[in-house]
């Protein structure tokens, strides 16, 4: 279980997350939605301990990670797998080397056993024959699936997905959604998915949280999300330009802010 308690994070004195409180339940798929730049990816980085909050605490399995040193946090991170938006595969390595790396670093397993595990995980994401290719030779969808397979190499309890379907065609997006559901149902993995793909939300989510301007505006089931009367949430889930979220005003606000910074 992961608990976020009164989390606050700012960049250049601009608040990104404001008093975020959330509990991520074990074995469930929690989806975090919100507009681009609303703080979703920052939230994932805080959960992983990649950045520290200005205020507040993050508890992973009851352990507070915000005050931990590097060695302790590395131990906690072995419980996690992460799929990055662009997969973040290491360019200079083949798919097999990418996937073998965490096991080479953290285990004493012989390379033959590691190779078998690489093959097993690649088969789980439906890509058994790409181990000798370099990331540059893979399409966007293939890269994401290899990224997913790499995230599973350490057999994590929790997997974080940063916009797993962004930039993919609808069929490949559905393949990724099915893989996420499969990991959850077959391996009992706790999943935290950051996305603004509403199709994915309704297909995979056990629970949805919406962040708007750094605040958790909605937290509930996908059914409750569909029925909500909150006009801001409705505008987002229906994908409407008109509504309480003023796009143009935000742009002017940002420019004004930049001008103030320059002065």
């Amino acid at each position: 279980m992961i608990e976020l308690v009164h989390l606050n994070k700012s960049y250049d004195s601009k608040p990104v997350l404001r008093d975020v409180n959330m509990t991520i339940e074990r074995g469930k798929i929690t989806v975090i939605i919100g507009r681009s730049g609303c703080g979703k990816s920052v939230l994932l980085k805080l959960i992983l301990g990649l950045i520290k909050p200005d205020k507040g605490q993050v508890f992973v399995e009851g352990q507070e990670i915000t005050t931990m040193g590097q060695e302790e946090i590395y131990k906690i991170r072995r419980k996690f797998g992460m799929l990055f938006q662009n997969a973040a595969l290491f360019d200079s390595m083949t798919v097999e080397e990418n996937m073998a790396l965490p096991l080479i670093e953290h285990s004493d397993l012989p390379y033959d056993v590691i190779k078998k595990r690489v093959q097993e995980k690649l088969s789980m994401v439906g890509m058994p024959e790409v181990k000798d290719l370099k990331p540059a030779e893979l399409s966007g969808g293939m890269r994401k699936r290899v990224g997913l397979a790499r995230a599973l190499m350490m057999e994590p309890e929790i997997v974080l997905y940063d916009e797993p379907t962004t930039g993919l065609d609808p069929i490949m997006a559905d393949v990724i959604n099915n893989i996420v559901i499969g990991f959850n149902e077959n391996l009992g993995i706790t999943s935290i998915v950051v996305t603004h793909d509403m199709g994915s939300v309704y297909k995979i989510a056990d629970r949805v949280a919406m962040i708007q301007r750094g605040i958790v505006l909605f937290d509930g089931t996908p059914d409750a999300l569909k029925k909500t009367k909150d006009p801001v949430v409705r505008q987002f889930i229906e994908g409407k330009a008109e509504g309480p979220i003023k796009i143009n005003r935000e742009i002017i606000y940002t420019r004004k802010e930049q001008e103030e910074k320059l002065l």
Binding site: K75, R78, M82, D91, P102
Partner: peptide
């Protein structure tokens, strides 16, 4: 630098590799 902007450095961190 290109590893940093393509999140490969973050990926190393999440794999608990310094």
């Amino acid at each position: 630098g290109s590893m940093k902007v393509t999140e490969q450095i973050d990926a190393l961190e999440t794999l608990a590799i310094d």
